[in-house]
């Protein structure tokens, strides 16, 4: 435990300061392991398919949330997609200005109807249009870690 410090008298009232000293460590999981392996080693974005419910899950999901079947069939959804929505973000988590502003997009991949959120790059915010075609820009192979940031961003094509 970090030592709790003493009353904050400047604020005119007594308060104790403290923290919760934890680091969260998230495993990619069983389905995630395969997803990130393909991302890192093969520049592929994989999904899992439930044929009964006609749903593709990207990133890969171990099970279909609708019918609860375990999903074994994987599909390469390709690294291009269609911009479904976007935002231009001018502030960070602490409300500080971000310069240049960051562009985030919701991208529908291939023909899958599966959507993922990622950054957009090599594009002026004034040129952004819903429906525009975008493609993944990959981190170079030696820089990849098996994380979602192995894709640097998506850019218009």
């Amino acid at each position: 435990m970090s030592k709790v410090k003493l009353p904050d008298s400047k604020a005119g009232k007594l308060a104790w300061k403290g923290d919760i000293p934890i680091t969260s460590r998230y495993t990619a999981g069983v389905a995630g392991q395969k997803f990130f392996q393909a991302l890192k080693e093969e520049e592929k974005i994989l999904g899992t398919v439930c044929n009964k419910c006609e749903v593709t899950y990207v990133p890969m999901k171990l099970f279909c949330e609708r019918c609860f079947a375990q999903l074994d069939e994987t599909v390469d959804v390709g690294d291009t997609g269609r911009l479904v929505s976007f935002s231009v973000v001018y502030i960070d988590l602490d409300s500080k200005k971000v310069n240049p502003p960051q562009i985030v997009g919701l991208i529908e991949l291939g023909n899958s109807q599966a959507r993922m959120v990622h950054r957009l790059g090599e594009v002026k915010s004034s040129d952004l249009r819903v429906g525009m075609k975008v493609k993944a820009v990959w981190e170079m192979p030696l820089g990849r870690e098996g994380k979602i940031t192995d894709i640097q961003y998506f850019k218009p094509v």
């Binding site: 009232k13 300061k17 680091t23 969260s24 998230y26 495993t27 990130f36 098996g146 994380k147």
Partner: peptide
Amino acid sequence: FKTHRVFYTTDIPKLQYAWDC
């Protein structure tokens, strides 16, 4: 984890509190 045999990510949540007395 040390050898990165499995993929994982980490995050340190920014949790600073001031508890009123």
